[in-house]
Amino acid sequence: MTAAAAPLADDLRLLYQEIILDHGKSPRNFRVVEHHTCKAQGNNPMCGDRVTVTARVSPAGLVEDVAFEGKGCAISIASASMMTETLSGQPVEIARKLSAAVQDLCTGRLETDQAKAAVGGALDDGVEKLAALSGVRQFPVRVKCATLPWHALMSCLDGKGQTTTEK
């Protein structure tokens, strides 16, 4: 890094933290859930990015398994990867709360501690990790990259097949 570039590095380093790059390059649960009970595709028409989320929800309302496939930037892939890692085995109700909390983290409506509280203290470690996505706040056009998988997850759990960042 040159001296001239140094003052600019901070918000980029915040956006592209190690954990984001790691999940972006080596996404977890990049597959289709076997015997999935729901499936939804999310599109970002601005960039053409696509993510398909599949999940198996038990009759008791537990997300037994959740996975994703798709093409996208480091932010959207990392977001999807961390999402599936965090939510596997969680109740649908918690998944909905977490989805709302992550979107609020990305837009700056909630800070990490508030997001933890919003999820009811059930997933503090997960929220802590997902808070890495809040680096997008400084990059307004990239917020949708981070939230796309969560829109797709909500469509999946709601039984809607398709969603878009443009609604």
């Binding site: 980029l12 956006l15 960039c47 930037c73 932010i75």
Partner: peptide, 12 residues
């Protein structure tokens, strides 16, 4: 990904 590139380039 092109979007990540464009974001970093923009900061330059």
């Amino acid at each position: 990904h092109p979007h990540d590139l464009a974001t970093v380039l923009d900061r330059s």
